[in-house]
Amino acid sequence: MIAIGLEGSANKLGIGIIEHNTETGVVKILANIRHTHVTPPGTGFLPRDTAVHHREFIIPVIKEALETSNVKIKDIDVICYTKGPGMGAPLVSVAIVARTLALLWNKPIVGVNHCIGHIEMGREITGANNPVVLYVSGGNTQVIAYSEHRYRIFGETLDIAVGNCLDRFARILNLPNDPSPGYNIEQYAKKGEKFIELPYAVKGMDVSFSGILSNIETIANEQLSNSQYTPEDLCYSLQETVFAMLVEITERAMAHIGSKEVLIVGGVGCNLRLQEMMAQMVEQRDGKVFATDERFCIDNGIMIAHAGLLAYRTGFVTPLEKSTCTQRFRTDEVHVAWRDT
């Protein structure tokens, strides 16, 4: 069975085409094309401009995906799109194309939860069986474990996402958004020498990042001018602090459910320092860390195609009249019919 996935919940526009062999269970990635809306240094991406970007590039990106995959339209079984969570205008811009394609080609359509897409793609690529999932990106920060046909949220951010905290600090330092602000913070952090103590905000199973961001913003404004600390020192300190918080709540979730596997997904998940810190913790528990590279960590269409096809194979379709988008769509709202209890 073959599915095409359309993703555009944030500044990445992604189209993926995937094939599941329903007899052998082998999954084959036929195309995974992405185009990113990159804004000038010091600025973030806004819903309206991001929607304009997606509308401009979606046709050529779909064409490229179809050419790369070499599939015929008649061989595509289902069209999958991101239903949410994400920014409204970009989501709708992509969903309208998904609906039009479904009607033109006479195919069923499946609306996919973006977070579920990340989790299922991570499981498929890494082979992690029943991991504690740390989902960290620009819009989401959650620690998740599976039970009884649902991905249950064990802990999450109480305010902004960890990626949002890093992105906004990159803006304060005027770091470029190309290829991504988080990548540039990671490179700066490698050269950091002095550690500055920042607030450490773990509250039970939850975390909070907004106070840390305001604190480091104040330090940046006061200390960078008198050269007490370098931007590299600040990036290093910020990363060490927020990643330590994430590792702590992940460890507690592992203890709760007795799992020895950790899967890191989402855009921040391709940060090698986070993967390294997580590995140190997990090794002490005789466990294993699973992570993917930027092709699958950062938002992409293939994960939407994959999660959509898993649902479709259990008989799930979204009626066209109900193929709406929703900015808020929690991970634990989805009934995971394709996994055992």
């Binding site: 309208i96 194309v97 039009t100």
Partner: peptide
Amino acid sequence: MITKTMDAF
């Protein structure tokens, strides 16, 4: 967006 999609696909 709909007419562009129709033209292309």
